[in-house]
Design a protein around this nucleic acid. Structure first.
Lengths: 108, 108
DNA sequence: TTAATATGATACCTTATGGTTTTATTTATG
DNA sequence: CATAAATAAAACCATAAGGTATCATATTAA
């Protein structure tokens, strides 16, 4: 239930977008994510917090680790927003919108 | 030909997203856009510059005015990026991807 | 229990961002 | 031509953002 703004904000940083792609390969602890970037754990952890605030990842505690998992549904606020422009597009894009609505419905 | 980052950045601000919706109603000069927001023309002009850098609007000169026009195609970098996650989604989302590819092809 | 690991939290620094104000330039208009 | 209108450009300001370093806390593991 993040505000759309939180999702847009989370996606605005390239490192955060890269983290999302990384998390499609496997769920990872903060340390594991940090290993893939040339910055401190603290910095990566801040990015993960922003991603979590934006609904793009979920975090579960496993012992002393925090396992970060990509949440594809977190992207829907952005898709929804883009879909609001569909009157400007053509019929082919209506197909996209329809497919999207099915996805939304399925997600309930 | 903006870098994807410029597009994501442009969409990260709520005022800029509102401006895009406003411009779906009509092409507008800077002054006309400014009339719809509680901030100075200079501030709105900065936002329009960021939107232009992100490929989301085009600007044409008409006398002493600069007419700003929404560019729906400017959203495709974002759509493309989201589509890169489709392996994580389900078959229904494949339909979305297909529709998107048709749109891309048509745009050439 | 002691030491190492993984993370949390805070303080701090630098730069980017969103905004205003002021001044200049270009284009209409009376 | 003189003036008003529309925008450009630059200086400036406060806050947000991305990053580091440091210290505290909570789990493991020896």
């Amino acid at each position: 239930m993040p505000a759309p703004q939180d999702t847009f904000r989370a996606l605005a940083d390239p490192t955060r977008r890269d983290i999302l792609h990384l998390l499609t390969k496997a769920d990872m602890s903060i340390a594991e994510v940090s290993d893939q970037f040339d910055m401190t754990r603290a910095a990566v952890k801040k990015h993960l917090t922003v991603l979590s605030d934006g609904g793009l990842i979920s975090v579960t505690t496993k012992g002393r680790e925090r396992i970060n998992q990509f949440r594809p549904e977190g992207l829907t606020p952005v898709i929804d927003w883009i879909a609001t422009f569909d009157l400007f597009w053509d019929d082919r894009l209506d197909a996209l919108k329809t497919a999207l609505q099915q996805f939304e419905a399925q997600d309930d």
